[in-house]
């Protein structure tokens, strides 16, 4: 009975912790996604310095949350985000508009993918 009570508490902790981390991941993913249209606009306007600064800020934000996400999200998906940001920064340095926009779109899709995958819904369960 003690074991069952202990495990029931553990299951409640899992559920509460699961809801908390899901909310956190969803919030941070959408925060990062909100920065994407701004960077996209700056690239389109060939405002390279501002685009570079905003992408650096995106990377900074990403570095802050990455360690926490490592615990819950499949590592390859996290590495993919890191790779996209590095490519964007590189294309911005060489002022390659088309490539930078393409990588930014890919980053946006990857963040949406993480967001959709972490959501608790019927599609994800099945």
């Amino acid at each position: 009975m003690k074991l069952l009570a202990g495990l029931t508490i553990l299951m409640i902790v899992f559920v509460v912790f699961g809801i908390h981390t899901q909310q956190q991941i969803l919030g941070l993913a959408s925060d990062m996604q909100e920065m994407v249209p701004n960077i996209s606009r700056e690239i389109n306007n060939e405002n390279w310095d501002a685009a570079r600064n905003d992408t650096a800020r995106l990377l900074e934000q990403w570095n802050e949350i990455q360690d926490r996400w490592d615990l819950f999200i499949v590592h390859s998906e996290i590495e993919q985000v890191e790779l996209y940001i590095a490519r964007i920064l590189s294309y911005l340095s060489s002022e390659d508009k088309a490539a930078a926009l393409a990588e930014l779109a890919a980053l946006n899709t990857q963040l949406s993918h993480i967001y959709r995958k972490e959501m608790f819904n019927v599609q994800n369960i099945f």
Partner: peptide, 16 residues
């Protein structure tokens, strides 16, 4: 590449 917790949570859930 798979977080350790992805293995531990189902094991503990199965135990429960």
């Amino acid at each position: 590449g798979i977080p350790l917790i992805n293995g531990l949570v189902p094991i503990m859930t199965l135990l429960f």
